[in-house]
Nucleic acid binder design. Structure first.
Lengths: 141, 141
DNA sequence: CAGTGTTATGTTATAGTATAACTCTCCCGA
DNA sequence: TCGGGAGAGTTATACTATAACATAACACTG
């Protein structure tokens, strides 16, 4: 039986650039696109290129510190570095995103696929809708 | 070209362009990007623009005939026009995609979110991995 | 029929997202 | 010391999607 995966089985070393990008993401207080991040960094580093941001995002994602939201082409800092499956609840009115653990439900889905011979590696679970606040107030205003 | 279609109450009326795009998608035998479709249409219609393809895709999606795969930026014809939630099993080796009904599992997820005050509208469930064929043969070759 | 609204389509341009390909440099370990 | 690999810079380009405006075709209504 497998116990648990050592937290640093695939340690990813984060560089200065990586942490800079991570700080911007934290400050964004919500999902940010790679180019949002780029724009935020340009005042200090006028020659910074998309490549730099994308490389940092790749590191951060590998390290479990950041998640990509596929249906928004955006990135969100992770609450913790676990690789547990999460579901993103995306409010299409205000743009806010809540991440929730969905390990159990996603497990059912991946297990069902595995029974058909598919070997799941990375699940994407994102639910669009309207958050409680917007639903109460009738939207953005 | 289509002359007129009896305007059933809530039916989405598909136009000639729409059906053309749908035919290309069917012929693709797998997920196709909007620009794949565009390239395939260009020989017959050299002046066709992205807008035209995107508008057709929008119609087809509204009609339930086509699904967008968010994590691939690609489109797939739907097996049927139901709006039941599906999960896409995406093989990252060969690129093939299988759609499976996931109404029950997705229902659990959306209900859990609804209990938190979120009102789900459109779920995105896509699982990347390796299909049985590729897993058996070791990959693309 | 004219006037009007709606939808589809065309056309041009641009915005937004992501990667390729090459270079340089620095650090570290053989 | 040297060579290799990771990080980072630089330039260019590929890929994805929409904006903004113009025209046409049709359907409704008065």
């Amino acid at each position: 039986m497998i116990k648990s995966i050592p937290p640093h089985a695939n340690a990813v070393v984060l560089t200065g650039n990586d942490l800079l990008v991570f700080d911007v993401l934290l400050a964004a207080n919500g999902p940010a696109s790679a180019y949002d991040i780029l724009d935020r960094l340009k005042p200090d580093r006028p020659r910074i290129a998309p490549t730099t941001v994308y490389r940092a995002l790749e590191h951060l994602i590998r390290a479990g510190r950041v998640r990509r939201i596929e249906s928004l082409n955006a990135y969100l800092p992770a609450a913790d570095a676990s690789d547990r499956a999460v579901v993103f609840a995306i409010c299409d009115d205000c743009g806010r995103v809540q991440a929730r653990d969905a390990g159990a439900e996603v497990g059912r889905i991946t297990k069902a696929l595995a029974r058909d011979g598919f070997r799941p590696s990375h699940p994407v679970v994102e639910v669009h809708g309207r958050c409680g606040d917007c639903d109460a107030t009738g939207g953005k205003p």
